[in-house]
Design a protein around this nucleic acid. Sequence first.
DNA 1: TCATATTTGTAGAATATATAAGTAAAAAAA
DNA 2: TTTTTTTACTTATATATTCTACAAATATGA
Lengths: 113, 113
Amino acid sequence: MKGYRLGELEELILLTVGILDQDAYGVAVLEEIKNQTGRKVNISAIHTVLSRLEDKGFLKSYMGGATEERGGRRKRLFTLSATGRAAIQEVKTLRNKLYDQLPPLALDFSYGQ
Amino acid sequence: MKGYRLGELEELILLTVGILDQDAYGVAVLEEIKNQTGRKVNISAIHTVLSRLEDKGFLKSYMGGATEERGGRRKRLFTLSATGRAAIQEVKTLRNKLYDQLPPLALDFSYGQ
DNA sequence: TCATATTTGTAGAATATATAAGTAAAAAAA
DNA sequence: TTTTTTTACTTATATATTCTACAAATATGA
């Protein structure tokens, strides 16, 4: 583990946890990504990444209460750490800086040569 | 190779090729990334990724002329394909959509409990 | 032709992502 | 209270991406 850099899926999941704010756990992250992007990520991949993001210090987690009226195992809820927030900001700033430097799409209207 | 998804470094390099526009080859990409982000990517990693991006259809390449007054092997120059341009646009749009949904940073001024 | 500079290419290890199978915990039903 | 169902997490393995070290190719100049 390099520890400080974010992979492509790691970044997406980190962002999604940020958006979900207070109800981010495996299945909710899966659903949110599907709704927002149409992408169907395997649930195990999500759990793996959530766990690795916590190892790397970008997320914190705690077990949800067992009081909710439903069957099933308890949820592990994730929230951004200060480092996680900073990482999102950093990545966002950098990307936008780069996007802004892309030359405008040069449409090629020449033909016949 | 999955073929259609962009890894973290792949995205950065694709963007950089777009920014460099007409003089994108291995070393130039390396320098540009270093200047823009401070990140020192290994030159071989860049070559590997450039080549894979071409395989995936996001980049095109051709060998540069041998006329320049310098030593060294000929450059392989890369430009965005139509697919590559589209991928950048898509990724940019999606990211900004997500960024916009992040709840504002909730500064926690509570203390003492 | 030989030495040097510059760049690209290849190989293997480390890290990240995807898929499949299994385990655990809680509620509901029998 | 035992079993079944529901929900979610964990582990294992395969594939893909990224990183590092090293080798090869192509140009210049002595």
